[in-house]
């Protein structure tokens, strides 16, 4: 039977606090012997999700709630805010394009979710007018 550990963390929406969440995620992944690349990918996914929550949630409590669930073979991270929810155009990045660039494919903003989806094995986004939860899972690859 594999050990399962649940860790809860709440961070304020304050510059660089996403690093506290990322460092917690990396410590848990390292504890379970995830490889270096996976640890970095987990950190980046946590950072992007926390930044999205800080930038777009408009939550009154200005907090991001993070739940880590780690087993021997995977790390699940659930990141929630109590904001106003996100719309479909935010989800696909079209609302966040920012200023036009010289090259159409060099989009400056709105790529956070694309990064998370590319780096994680499973990503689920649930959003309502009461808040948004982004859940993602990284499976441990055999070394």
């Amino acid at each position: 039977m594999s050990d399962e550990h649940k860790i809860l963390l709440t961070i304020p929406m304050y510059p660089d606090m996403e690093l506290a969440a990322a460092k917690t995620g990396s410590a848990l992944a390292e504890l379970k012997d995830f490889n270096e690349e996976a640890v970095e990918e987990i950190q980046l996914a946590i950072i992007e999700t926390c930044i999205n929550a800080s930038e777009h949630s408009q939550s009154d409590d200005k907090e991001v709630h993070i739940q880590f669930l780690v087993t021997d073979d995977k790390l699940q991270v659930k990141i929630s805010d109590r904001g106003v929810g996100i719309t479909a155009d935010t989800l696909d990045g079209t609302r966040l394009l920012g200023t036009p660039t010289l090259h159409a494919d060099l989009r400056k903003r709105g790529r956070g979710l694309q990064i998370i989806r590319a780096l994680m094995d499973e990503v689920v986004i649930e959003s309502s007018p009461n808040g948004t939860t982004v859940s993602f899972t990284k499976k441990k690859t055999p070394s």
């Binding site: 970095e40 980046l44 930044i51 920012g98 660039t101 400056k108 790529r111």
Partner: peptide, 16 residues
């Protein structure tokens, strides 16, 4: 150690 998407957007500005 880490580059977030805001950091990447700034790198794109330098490329431009």
């Amino acid at each position: 150690t880490l580059i977030n998407s805001i950091g990447i957007s700034i790198l794109i500005e330098i490329i431009e």
